[in-house]
């Protein structure tokens, strides 16, 4: 294959995949609004994606807040701005680190699980079986995961924001002896509601992306056990890339 053919193939593959994801988005949107809602499955997925991701999100958030405070303090001390550590931690957590790190963790945890589960269901004909039992697989499998992604990611992000800021507080006040009043004053003075909203909008978008990309990888799996493995890897890689790349454009747009 010469380079031009190779480039063409990559482009074609990308177009096919992008197209199939968009088609899945369309049918998911259609099925979301078709009654009756599948409450039981939605709650089950919320538990899986939201609640079960909580421990690892908490650990990530608290240590991110702590290390951020540590580094910022070291840097800011050089020009005597230690008192501003609180606001830097709060801004970074709410606007950037909260939504992005939470989403990356959920992509690795829940996204991989979604792709593996749906992929296995596809190769063992369980998805065909759903069809023969007069159940729409998009409504039964993808809609609950999509709704959970779009709601649980912002919820997890709020928790990550709070815990990250508390982590920063612990290091700044506990370790470096900055006064507690100064930390909170600086945090509240410079943090706007807008910063939190921007983070949450991003989290919503990331949650939707993780669910759709991972479900689509699983849903269109071919080729047995190897195919399921590839689908799982593909889901995590593509979700993570989408989060990191779209994060820049969303940030620029929502600034």
């Amino acid at each position: 294959m010469n380079p031009v053919e190779k480039f063409g193939k990559v482009l074609m593959d990308f177009t096919v995949e992008f197209g199939s994801i968009m088609l899945l988005v369309c049918s998911t949107m259609k099925q979301i609004f078709l009654p009756p809602p599948d409450i039981r499955n939605i709650f089950k997925q919320m538990l899986e994606i939201g609640v079960r991701s909580l421990p690892v999100v908490l650990i990530t958030a608290v240590f991110t807040g702590m290390v951020f405070a540590l580094q910022t303090y070291t840097g800011f001390k050089r020009f005597g701005a230690e008192s501003l550590v609180g606001s830097v931690v709060a801004l970074s957590m709410t606007r950037e680190l909260g939504p992005v790190l939470t989403s990356l963790i959920v992509a690795g945890r829940a996204g991989a699980a979604m792709a593996a589960e749906l992929g296995t269901m596809r190769v063992t004909e369980q998805i065909d079986a759903l069809e023969t039992l007069a159940t729409n697989p998009v409504k039964y499998l993808i809609v609950p995961r999509f709704i959970s992604g779009i709601t649980m990611l912002p919820a997890l992000t709020v928790v990550a924001d709070i815990i990250g800021i508390l982590g920063g507080y612990a290091v700044t006040v506990g370790l470096f002896g900055i006064s507690s009043t100064v930390y909170w004053n600086k945090t509240w003075n410079y943090l706007e509601l807008n910063d939190i909203y921007i983070g949450l909008i991003k989290a919503c978008f990331f949650g939707a992306s993780i669910a759709i990309i991972s479900c689509s990888r699983g849903f269109y799996t071919t080729g047995g056990a190897e195919g399921v493995g590839k689908a799982t890897t593909g889901a995590v890689v593509r979700s993570s890339m989408t989060i990191l790349i779209s994060d820049y454009f969303l940030s620029a747009w929502l600034f």
Partner: peptide
């Protein structure tokens, strides 16, 4: 789609690997 799901209620299918929901 809707008509198809209606017709499918007439069918029962046994899959090769049984395809039970695990």
């Amino acid at each position: 789609e809707k008509g198809l799901y209606e017709v499918r209620k007439k069918f029962g299918m046994l899959f090769q690997g049984a395809a039970l929901f695990d």
